[in-house]
Design a protein around this nucleic acid. Structure first.
Lengths: 134, 134
DNA sequence: CAGTATCCGCAAGGATACTG
DNA sequence: CAGTATCCTTGCGGATACTG
């Protein structure tokens, strides 16, 4: 009943699909991963995540804040200080993302190898001549 | 030495980052998930994945094929029959993706709740007045 | 420092028509 | 059926300038 593995992510209206769409962008997983080890300030995040712009970092952080993934703390210091921390919910997502990260690390050379030996002509089947019978 | 959890995904040039960029698009995870249970034909995939267009399905499948995730088999039947199957590498990715899917299913209501109770004004810290000492 | 505001290019991606 | 080819729109995301 619970955690039915194929609930309905294929349905565009399903909440799980919405969630997937949210994290399947260019920066979300990286921000989550960066915050996995602890609290970071805005500029620290920007330095750590290579290639991200202020706009995208702000945008991603706001979205994660709205969804209850990160907590934003503001200190009224002279130049203002803002610290971002993962919420428990955010940490649970970080765990899931780390699985993806681990997979990427484990298999990156296998992928690189597959890209090298890619032959578009080899689309013909080896032996299967029995028609699938439509 | 191996699987250093923070290898260098933050570096744009790192292979793991490339891999992440590849799977962090709108359709890859869904195609992988759809093929998790077994072989499917092109039109079956299109029907299962709500909202995907022929162009995007073809594009995603080609990319996955190049990276050694899916295997493409063509039968020279009268109307041609094409079947897509996950490779072992693809299956390992499917496992990682299913973790994300499981997380989405488990926490979708928590996210929905967070979205409801989002107050942009509550950016002030509860008590922490001790300056982080710049 | 930590943003906001604005402009803008470019590519992701949708719609449609056509083919082997 | 399983695509390819083409056109066209959307908006992601980068660059830059400015603010409290």
């Amino acid at each position: 009943m619970e955690t039915d593995p194929r609930w309905d992510m294929m349905n565009a209206a399903c909440p799980t699909r919405q969630v997937l769409d949210r994290i399947a962008d260019k920066w979300t997983m990286l921000v989550i991963s960066a915050l996995e080890d602890g609290t970071l300030r805005f500029s620290e995040l920007r330095r750590q995540i290579d290639g991200i712009t202020q706009k995208m970092l702000t945008q991603t952080l706001r979205a994660l804040e709205r969804d209850g993934m990160v907590d934003r703390q503001v200190w009224p210091t002279v130049p203002v200080t803002v610290r971002y921390t993962l919420t428990p919910l955010g940490h649970s997502l970080a765990d899931a993302v780390s699985v993806i990260r681990g997979w990427a690390y484990e298999n990156m050379d296998a992928i690189a190898a597959a890209r090298g030996s890619y032959e578009p002509g080899t689309g013909a089947p080896p032996t299967p001549m029995a028609t699938p019978a439509d």
